[in-house]
């Protein structure tokens, strides 16, 4: 019981501290901007730990963060193998193939007005559909190994990418395109010197959306059949064994991989589109 009370006290204290920091004089400084969410996150973890211990919640319902951390550290080889199987082999290769395919299609669409009017509505319609549903079919076609996961990822990232790239390529104004024409620029010169750079913010928006979709696609596809390694496989089998600490460790891996992937894309975006208003801060 003392632990539960301690949890509530800690929560109240940390919240009071955050309120003070957020309304204090230094609220705009970088340090406080970083400190407030960190304090919030750490408090959440501590309250979780205290409540689980204080209320004696069994492992099969909710393991404490310390148990998850211990499991994570002791299972690093397994987790690494799962990570390589699902993320590097499945998600990443599918992501690259899907984005390149979408890019090639976007250029085709861009060169032909007929294709643009025909393919784009179909593309944006498909982009809104629950494409993870194709996972069982693709697993049946390409087998249980990573190839089928990569295929699911390709299908998932293709349409959001296509819609974003095509929207980006239309971003230039008529005046800018006319200028290129007065320079007697060929299609490809105009493409690489004007329209592709102008499309970069859209392209990166697509890349960022797709980075999340890629990991989801690779994990969910493993629920439909996989070799005995992989994050989705580990999650579904550990759930079956009620080894919830392992499930949470795997979720930590997924969270780190997902945010690192997104962060990398965002970092590259910052370097490439430094000229865009949203990046000049």
């Amino acid at each position: 019981m003392t632990l539960v009370i301690a949890a509530f006290l800690l929560w109240a204290l940390a919240w009071a501290l955050n309120v003070k920091l957020a309304n204090g004089p230094g609220a705009q400084s970088a340090g406080v901007r970083l400190a407030v969410p960190v304090i919030f996150g750490l408090t959440l973890l501590a309250v979780w730990e205290l409540l689980v211990r204080g209320l004696d919640i069994p492992l099969v319902i909710l393991p404490a963060p310390s148990v998850i951390a211990a499991r994570f550290l002791s299972e690093i080889p397994t987790l690494w193998a799962d990570f390589v199987q699902t993320f590097v082999k499945g998600a990443l290769s599918g992501y690259v193939i899907g984005c390149l395919a979408a890019f090639a299609t976007a250029i085709l669409v861009d060169r032909s007005d007929f294709l643009r009017r025909g393919l784009l509505p179909v593309g944006s319609f498909v982009a809104a559909l629950p494409i993870v549903g194709t996972a069982p079919i693709l697993v049946m076609w390409y087998g249980f190994d990573w190839q089928s996961k990569a295929a699911v990822v390709v299908v998932m990232v293709f349409f959001p990418m296509l819609v974003n790239i095509v929207a980006g390529l239309n971003e230039t104004s008529a005046m800018q395109r006319d200028l290129m024409k007065t320079y007697a620029a060929s299609y490809w010169q105009g493409f690489f010197k004007l329209r592709l750079p102008a499309a970069m913010p859209f392209l990166f928006n697509g890349l960022k959306i797709s980075s999340t979709l890629a990991l989801i696609g690779a994990i969910v596809a493993e629920f439909f059949g996989s070799p005995i390694v992989g994050m989705g496989f580990r999650i579904s089998t550990s759930v079956g064994q009620l080894a919830l600490d392992m499930v949470w460790a795997e979720i930590v891996v997924a969270a780190i991989a997902g945010s690192a992937f997104y962060g990398t894309v965002a970092l590259i975006e910052k370097r490439v589109t430094f000229w865009h208003p949203s990046q000049r801060g």
């Binding site: 099969v60 319902i61 999340t212 989801i216 994990i219 994050m231 759930v239 919830l244 997924a254 997902g258």
Partner: peptide, 19 residues
């Protein structure tokens, strides 16, 4: 939003089932 939340789905189902 950058985290594959769907990965938790099986766990939520099983845990709620056990309570």
């Amino acid at each position: 939003q950058t985290i594959p939340i769907l990965a938790i789905a099986p766990m939520i189902i099983v845990v709620l089932n056990s309570v």
